[in-house]
């Protein structure tokens, strides 16, 4: 009863997110350009995985095509570079990704389980090849982007997006919307029978989860200073997002942060010295988590907390 009437105040979570982000940003800039790039990558993955988790973590529909949103944002920003200012083209890139997701949502969300996974993957590849064909037709195999903003500036933007994505996942999880999505994940028939407008919620979450990745894509293409379709629509981006979500745990705003930290940490340790070992270990960790800790690191932490609370009482 006490637990039911107890409502957690969101202020500590907001404060922790903001303080953490500000600390990492300032520390990395202080430590020099190498660490600035590491921090940029970290925030990029947090923003992407967090957005993925908003849809896939909450509804259980595993999207293997989130790179489409990233690529669409990158494409819009690259093609309009020096034509419209970045402060406008980046949000437009996010919007374009969201609108695209909204359009494909209705047919795509009719299937679930493995079919949905394959369909999103196939859709991402389809968009990649359509754009590749378009670009080569116009004689643009890749576009150089001179005069992109400095890494520090990009870091501020991407860190801000990571914070926003984290807070969105956090607040949606506590909201009526989030509870409806959880019902969808558990049992769609039962959900609609108790009044949950299942299709509307899924479509909304799907579209919302594409917006921030679109903006991140736009920013990261500025970071690489050239645009290449095969690079920004690289399916490895989708795979990495899912890997981080599995290792960190989806459905809790802390999961994607842990997942991104873990994978980047592992990469930092091994990438330059033993890249083969990196992939072998990553594969082992992935298998291990799927088998023994399907709710990821955050699931392990929660389980430990619960069992120690059980011992204490």
């Amino acid at each position: 009863m006490t637990k039911a009437s107890m409502t957690h105040t969101p202020i500590p979570a907001i404060a922790a997110t903001l303080i953490g982000a500000i600390l990492i940003v300032s520390l990395s800039i202080f430590m020099g350009s190498y660490w600035t790039v590491v921090a940029l990558n970290l925030f990029m993955w947090i923003a992407l995985t967090q957005s993925w988790s908003l849809f896939s973590g909450m509804t259980g529909y595993i999207s293997l095509g989130h790179v489409v949103a990233y690529g669409i944002g990158a494409y819009l920003v690259a093609t309009t570079f020096k034509i419209i200012p970045l402060w406008l083209s980046i949000p437009l890139g996010g919007l374009a990704a969201g609108v695209f997701a909204l359009i494909v949502a209705i047919p795509v969300l009719r299937v679930r389980g493995p079919y949905f996974v394959i369909l999103t993957f196939g859709l991402a590849e389809l968009v990649k090849f359509i754009l590749l064909y378009t670009e080569t037709t116009f004689g643009k195999s890749s576009r150089l982007l001179f005069g992109a903003p400095k890494t520090e500036t990009l870091l501020y933007w991407v860190a801000a997006l990571a914070v926003v994505a984290t807070l969105i996942t956090y607040f949606v999880g506590r909201s009526r919307f989030g509870k409806g999505l959880a019902a969808v994940r558990e049992d769609e028939t039962a959900a609609e029978t108790v009044g949950v407008p299942v299709t509307r919620l899924k479509v909304l979450a799907f579209a919302a989860s594409a917006v921030i990745p679109g903006m991140v894509g736009g920013l990261m293409t500025m970071r690489s200073t050239y645009f290449d379709v095969l690079q920004v629509f690289n399916p490895t981006i989708s795979f990495s997002i899912v890997t981080m979500a599995i290792i960190g745990g989806a459905g809790d705003a802390r999961g994607p942060i842990l997942g991104a930290l873990f994978m980047l940490g592992l990469a930092e340790l091994l990438w330059s010295t033993a890249p083969q070992l990196y992939f072998i270990l990553l594969g082992l960790f992935l298998i291990g988590f799927v088998l023994f800790a399907p709710n990821g690191m955050i699931g392990l932490i929660k389980r430990r907390k619960r069992s120690s609370a059980g011992v204490a009482s």
Binding site: A4, R176, K179, G180, A182, A183, R185, E186, D187, T189, A190, A191, T193, V194, G195, V196, P197
Partner: peptide, 20 residues
């Protein structure tokens, strides 16, 4: 057809939040 992964209370909360 319970929402098996959610708590018993959350099951009813969802009905309260959406069914009315």
């Amino acid at each position: 057809r319970p929402f098996a992964g959610l708590s018993v209370r959350e099951n009813v909360e969802i009905a309260i939040l959406y069914g009315r």
